[in-house]
């Protein structure tokens, strides 16, 4: 078997094992949380008999291992159980929320990733001159200001004063794509500002590192101009670290946007999770945790795979 196939198979197998371990961690973690679902459903005045009955009904008395295996088996077949508090099917509710979250993350990524890489290349081309310093200053400022503050400032300026986009990012199925995009314009802008700096600075650092190589001198001595040297010769050798940081930020866009969802009243995964944590609805929390873990592990796995594929020594062995 070629080395590269073996390496890729290893990465994927490792990812799956990691996901399995994390699922165990999530299960144990949610079990040792303080509080009791039956109590929170029935309230303080519930009789001990009623509590015991509800616990038995919910399967809370079964041994933990049995419950874990049942839960895991269900999750693997797409059945995440029912929410304890509302009785709604979790898979169904999550599918809707997740697609909203992915919709937001997708558009934020479409803008932020190319912009960050372009700004990184620009900063390298004009290293230590004013474009580099301006890009660094602006992106650093945007990452340093809390995201909710950026959110409210943009909302005040663009939604309230200029009235270009709505301040609330409510979307539903009956809207056209254009309406949806208009609705999420502000949260996308905020998310872009939040993730831009990290990716841009990493792109800059990775390419500057490559720019020290002797083959960059070769390229310069061929009479290529600054951008040609950076695009053709430096960038292809800096892909692995750049993809790594891009994937980390994509994962953040999926799992870390609770604050933005709350600020813009966006019906995404984050809000859904926070709601159910406060209600101690363990199956929902577990399901959200599992999906977030899968997204993180999956994206990092993609980063690893791209890094392997971008290495010519592995792609074309001797």
């Amino acid at each position: 078997m070629p080395l590269i196939v073996k390496l890729l198979a290893q990465r994927i197998a490792l990812g799956l094992i990691l996901l399995l371990l994390v699922s165990g961690l999530i299960f144990v973690g949610t079990m040792i949380l303080p509080g009791d679902v039956a109590q929170s459903i029935l309230g303080q005045s519930a009789t001990p008999e009623a509590l015991a009955n509800l616990r038995a009904e919910l399967g809370l008395n079964d041994p933990p291992l049995q419950r874990y295996i049942q839960w895991l088996g269900g999750a693997m077949t797409g059945d995440l159980g029912t929410a304890l508090t509302s009785g709604a099917d979790i898979t169904e509710s999550i599918a809707k929320r997740l697609s909203n979250t992915l919709f937001l993350a997708f558009w934020a990524a479409i803008i932020a990733v190319p912009l960050a890489i372009f700004l990184g290349l620009l900063a390298v081309r004009f290293k230590d001159r004013w474009p580099d310093k301006l890009i660094s200053a602006v992106t650093l400022a945007s990452i340093s200001i809390p995201e909710f503050l950026i959110g409210y400032v943009l909302m005040y300026l663009i939604a309230v004063k200029l009235r270009w986009f709505p301040s609330v990012a409510m979307i539903n199925d009956s809207m056209t794509l254009g309406d949806k995009l208009s609705a999420i314009a502000l949260p996308v802008a905020v998310l872009t500002l939040v993730v831009l700096a990290h990716m841009m600075r990493m792109t800059r650092a990775a390419i500057l590192n490559v720019m020290q190589s002797a083959y960059i001198e070769t390229a310069e001595l061929k009479g290529l101009n600054g951008f040609q040297v950076i695009f053709r010769h430096a960038f292809p050798n800096a892909i692995a670290p750049i993809v790594n940081v891009v994937m980390l930020n994509l994962a953040y866009l999926v799992v870390g946007v609770v604050v933005i969802e709350v600020v813009f009243v966006y019906p995404g995964m984050g809000q859904y999770l926070v709601d159910h944590v406060s209600k101690r609805d363990v199956p929902v929390v577990q399901a959200c945790g599992l999906i977030f873990a899968a997204v993180y592990i999956g994206l990092n796995m993609v980063a690893d795979i791209v890094a392997i594929l971008s290495n010519p020594r592995l792609r074309h062995p001797k």
Partner: peptide, 16 residues
């Protein structure tokens, strides 16, 4: 004018 360096191994771009 063109240039031949001491270390071709370092002077060729490994990705191309």
């Amino acid at each position: 004018v063109t240039y031949v360096s001491q270390s071709a191994a370092a002077s060729f771009n490994p990705a191309k």
